[in-house]
Simulated assay, not measured.
Amino acid sequence: MVSIKEVAKHAGVAISTVSKVLNGYPNVSEETKKKVQDAIKELNYIPNSIAAALSSKQFGRIALVLDPNRQTQAIDQIFMQYLVGALDKAKELNVEVVTIFPSMIAGMTAEEITRSFLSQSISGVVIYGMSKEDKVLQKLIREKQFACVVVDAPIVNARTTYISIDQEQAQYDVAKKTVLDDNCKRVLYIAGRRDGYVTEQRLKGMRRLVKDLDLTMMVRQGDFSELTARNVALKYAKNKDVVVCASDLMAIGAMNALIDMDIFRPVCGFDGITLMGYVGKQMNTIRQDFYSISSRAVEEVHQLMNGGEGHQVVMPHSIVKMYYKDIIC
């Protein structure tokens, strides 16, 4: 086994410098840090703490990398369903899971995250809602050190499985039903975040619908924010026939804007969260079973950890209307 002394010699630095890099000390230059990291890779050095974890019976934990929605004061139902689905499946499979919030790994390189995860006996990772700008997590996936499942991010390799509903078709389906029900032609589409994979896929579905039904469409970003969508609707909805939103929270914001303006426009959302039933006006939406998606994600990462091959998993979706009487207990 390669020693820390050999790494220091290979990098041309002191042993204490290697230790500082391994432990994330800030007072090390980028040039020196790169020398040490390159030496670690070339020699395939494994720190003693990580080596102990690799050889322990506890090795095989699954990390859940997910973030609650901080843009609303409402309880994040999607986050909770993801979490409970994962925990229930982990219990069934008799594997241990740890929850990693983005703030816990913010500013870390892929190499630093790898060392941190290995030191915690993590060998599988489920990543929820990764954006196109998450370059560090993307690098972590490409390096294939861990078995990975990505939820709603279309990345597949030998050690990575992608799981999602058909985002493009789901957006097409719910918008088409809403447009045809009210014979609409002029569409205001409130999209999600610009850096989101699902935003890109759902917008593709909308553009296909516009072409198929010969509609006109104005696209504005809502950033999955109820407030932003409300402001967009206040500004643009009056001159449109229908408001299609890429999330239920944005649909709620848009609908409340229309109520305040005392005008009617059909509105549809996406996700199927319980809050839709409390709006007072029923709206079409796409129901995703977030519990089942997360449960399946843990099952898939467990299979990858046991030698499985990465692939794509498409989960079902349905068009629903959320009625108050159906959600009260």
Score class of each variant (00 low, 15 high):
109 T>C: 05
180 L>T: 11
27 N>G: 00
305 M>S: 07
74 A>G: 05
119 S>I: 04
9 K>A: 09
170 A>F: 01
105 I>Y: 04
69 N>F: 06
153 A>H: 04
104 M>C: 03
206 M>K: 03
72 T>H: 10
255 M>C: 15
67 D>K: 14
115 R>E: 15
139 K>M: 09
244 V>I: 15
63 A>S: 13
204 K>Q: 11
318 S>K: 11
62 I>A: 08
243 V>D: 11
24 G>P: 06
172 Y>D: 02
19 S>Y: 14
136 V>Q: 07
259 I>R: 15
250 M>T: 13
262 D>N: 13
113 I>N: 06
263 I>D: 09
108 M>W: 09
91 K>L: 09
38 D>F: 08
164 S>T: 02
24 G>Y: 08
261 M>W: 10
229 A>S: 08
191 A>V: 03
162 Y>A: 06
164 S>F: 03
4 I>L: 14
280 G>A: 04
127 I>M: 04
132 K>R: 07
151 V>G: 02
218 M>C: 14
90 A>V: 07
187 V>M: 04
202 R>E: 02
235 K>V: 06
88 D>G: 06
181 D>V: 00
268 C>T: 11
151 V>H: 05
271 D>G: 01
300 E>A: 12
176 K>A: 06
208 R>N: 12
209 L>W: 09
100 I>Q: 05
228 T>V: 14
40 I>S: 10
170 A>T: 02
101 F>W: 12
60 G>V: 12
201 Q>F: 10
217 M>Q: 11
116 S>G: 12
273 I>F: 02
114 T>V: 14
130 M>P: 06
53 A>N: 11
3 S>C: 06
68 P>R: 15
313 V>A: 00
1 M>F: 11
215 L>I: 11
275 L>D: 14
75 I>K: 15
285 T>Q: 10
63 A>Y: 08
259 I>L: 15
169 Q>L: 09
218 M>E: 15
49 S>K: 00
115 R>D: 15
32 T>Y: 08
81 Q>E: 15
291 Y>N: 01
35 K>A: 01
136 V>H: 04
